[in-house]
C-alpha cells in the first residue's frame, strides 16, 4: 500500500503534469483546449499515448501514468468530467497491478 504512484516524478509524469497545470492556470488555455484539443496538445510534444489519454478523458490511464493526483483532480473538475465517471474510473484500478506500483 502506498499513497503515491511515483515517489519521484518521472519525466513522462512531469510532461503530463505540465499540460494539466498550464491548462487550468494560464489565461485562455482552457478555451484553446476546448476549441481544438489536438492543436493545443501539440504545443507540448507529449508522447502520443499521453496525449491520447488526456484527450480521451481516460482518468484511469492518466492516474497510472504517474500524473500528480491533485492536478488530475482539478482537471477532472475543470473539464467537467462527471464526478461519478471519474470516481468509477479511479476505483476500477483498486486491484490493478500497476496501482501505486503494486
Amino acid at each position: 500500500m502506498a499513497n503515491w504512484q511515483e515517489m519521484m516524478p518521472s519525466t513522462r509524469a512531469y510532461m503530463m503534469n505540465k499540460v494539466l497545470y498550464e491548462l487550468h492556470h494560464k489565461p485562455d488555455h482552457l478555451e484553446a483546449y476546448n476549441d481544438d484539443a489536438d492543436a493545443y496538445l501539440a504545443r507540448f510534444a507529449l508522447p502520443q499515448d499521453l496525449a491520447d489519454c488526456i484527450k480521451g478523458n481516460d482518468v484511469a490511464q492518466m492516474y497510472l501514468s504517474g500524473v500528480n493526483p491533485y492536478l488530475l483532480r482539478a482537471h477532472c473538475i475543470g473539464v467537467k468530467i462527471p464526478e461519478d465517471v471519474s470516481l468509477a474510473a479511479l476505483r476500477s484500478l483498486l486491484n490493478h497491478e500497476g496501482y501505486n506500483n503494486g
Partner: peptide, 9 residues
C-alpha cells in the same frame, strides 16, 4: 482522505 486515487471515498 484520498484525492484522485483508486481509494478516493
Amino acid at each position: 482522505h484520498d484525492i484522485a486515487t483508486p481509494r478516493m471515498g
